[in-house]
Design a protein around this nucleic acid. Structure first.
Length: 485
RNA sequence: GGCCCCAUCGUCUAACGGUUAGGACAACGGGUUUUCAAUCCGUUAAUCGGAGUUCGAUUCUCCGUGGGGUCACCA
């Protein structure tokens, strides 16, 4: 008998559509717990409801987990000692346990049709009491032949108390307990049975799940008891609430596909950072965290009990922070994902890499790059912009002759530079001249406008550096010419 | 409605029963700046209410209120 059990956690979604942030966070916590303890993380698919199953869901779940860097040691796609990790392929296991329970008199076949059960339900309601199937329990149920639902026979109606690794000591009254269905008439098990059998056979030590399951725990406990097994450690995560504040965030309330965030230009590291901080934090003032730090510092006992809201502003801020921390190459690749191929091509690699820091500095989410391009804020990088004389003359505050003089001087300065080495170098050279004026704007504004043709743009040094020496010379000359017309 | 869970700034949250209740996002104000952005500094802002335990409650207990969850041949 080994005394130290390896930590085994699992993420067990049902393939009913895309993954949203609630599911992802559950996966993240379970994964971190396994990784932190050098344990095993399992991906199991709970596809026991053929009605609700959405084709393609499994691939989407796998893709979502992969995007976030969540890897699993056993499960769908990688296999493992339990053999199958798709519940629909494990039907024999559930039936075996079902029969065992029936043989012990702890489960029985439900002889009624769904309509008959509904009638019972109505009867209870009209009598003003909650419906419990066990009130209508058949006296002499038929032997289960697999075509009827198999129900657990609750032998002792009692209150349950249990310990939750996050919530502490919990309890529920006997009202919650009923002869629930273990195996449906279609031969598939319910969640209630399947997850317990699988967790047993897969040696799962910690079950992390969302708090809508909390009221079902007495059922689970009754089944663990009937099966004669010790339940794993249970940890109930707090709900994630919708941005408006109070309602639990679910798909019906606008919980988006996690892959949508990827497509919008959120970094997986930022998404992870954001999600793990809903309901958990390391207890100090850390705001930005990497996956490795999260794994190292995660602590089940520090998980929040109360629900947390989804705050998109914070997510955007976190994404920006992660964007800043990317390497030059990573930033370049990121920008390339969102810029149009046409723009990237006409820019060329060199200009694109000079432009990248400026773009990164001005966005918090990738899709904003598309917006910038659409709004024409980037066109000047590849095209000589048309110029308005009045604006060029410091918005009409300056004589054309003076502006011409300044621009000519700038042209000389720029021309005399052998090459543009850096923004700083260009800035130093130009500032030396601009600083000789009481108002630098007299020089800098015409220069910036000559280079960009925009009322609002990055500073002229940065723009000049991005454009390169030849193009900068060309545009200053163009501005001078346009003033002499 | 029964059962269950939860409750600190607008939001995410910190605080062995003893803190001027801290941080972050947002908002607002300012510095820097040729513009926009970025960046820096600062300001506003919270313990749901009522009892109790205690020398002392954000913290423990009870009641109330509010919010959420669940009462399926869904998970």
């Amino acid at each position: 008998m080994s005394t130290t059990h390896k930590v085994v956690t699992r993420f067990a979604p049902s393939p009913t559509g895309y993954m949203h942030i609630g599911g992802v966070r559950t996966a993240l916590f379970a994964w971190a717990l396994a990784r932190q303890n050098k344990g095993t993380f399992i991906l199991r698919i709970e596809d026991t409801d053929k009605e609700r199953e959405v084709p393609g869901s499994i691939d989407q779940i796998i893709e979502s987990l992969a995007w976030l860097g969540i890897t699993w040691d056993e499960g769908v796609g990688v296999g493992g000692p339990a053999g199958e990790y798709l519940q629909s392929k494990r039907l024999d296991h559930y039936i075996k346990y079902g029969k065992k329970l029936e043989a012990k008199g702890l489960a029985y076949a439900d002889p009624y049709t769904a309509e008959e059960v509904d009638a019972f339900r109505k009867k209870s309601e009209t009598e003003g009491r909650p419906f419990l199937y066990r009130d209508y329990r058949p006296q002499n149920p038929p032997t289960w032949d697999g075509t009827q639902p198999l129900r657990l026979k609750i032998t002792t109606i009692k209150s349950y108390s249990w310990h939750d690794a996050i919530r502490g000591d919990l309890s529920a009254g006997p009202e919650a307990l009923d002869d629930f269905i273990l195996i449906k008439s279609d031969g598939y098990p319910t969640y209630n049975l399947a997850h317990i059998i699988d967790d047993l056979e897969m040696n799962v030590t910690h079950i992390l799940r969302a708090d809508e399951f909390i009221s079902s725990v007495p059922k689970f406990l009754a089944l663990y008891e009937a099966l004669g097994i010790t339940p794993p450690i249970m940890a109930t995560l707090p709900p994630i609430m919708a941005p408006d504040g109070k309602k639990k965030l679910g798909k019906r309330d606008g919980a988006k596909d996690i892959l949508g965030y990827r497509d919008d230009g959120y970094l997986p590291s930022a998404m992870l950072n954001f999600l793990v901080f809903i309901g958990w934090n390391p207890g100090d003032e850390t705001e930005i965290i990497t996956a490795d730090e999260f794994i190292e510092r995660f602590d089940l006992t520090k998980v929040q009990r109360s629900g947390g809201g989804f705050n998109e502003d914070k997510l955007n801020w976190i994404n920006k922070e992660h964007l800043k921390r990317l390497s030059t190459q990573e930033q370049f690749d990121f920008v390339l994902r969102f810029i149009s191929p046409a723009f990237a091509t006409s820019c060329g690699t060199d200009k694109m890499s000079r432009l990248t820091p400026t773009i990164i500095e001005r966005i918090s989410v990738g899709k904003e790059i598309r917006d910038m391009e659409e709004k024409g804020e980037l066109a000047f990088i590849v095209l000589q912009p048309p110029l308005d004389q009045a604006i060029l003359n410091w918005n009409g505050k300056q004589d054309a002759a003076i502006t011409t003089k300044y621009l000519s001087k700038l042209l000389t300065i720029v021309t005399n530079l052998p090459t543009f080495e850096s923004v700083e170098q260009v800035k130093n050279e130009i500032m030396q001249f601009a600083d000789s004026f009481a108002q630098r704007g007299a020089v800098l504004h015409p220069l910036r406008y000559a280079l960009t043709g925009l009322a609002q743009s990055p500073d002229p040094f940065t723009v000049a550096y991005i454009l390169g020496k030849d193009e900068t010379v060309k545009r200053i000359s163009f501005a001078i010419d346009s003033l002499s017309l």
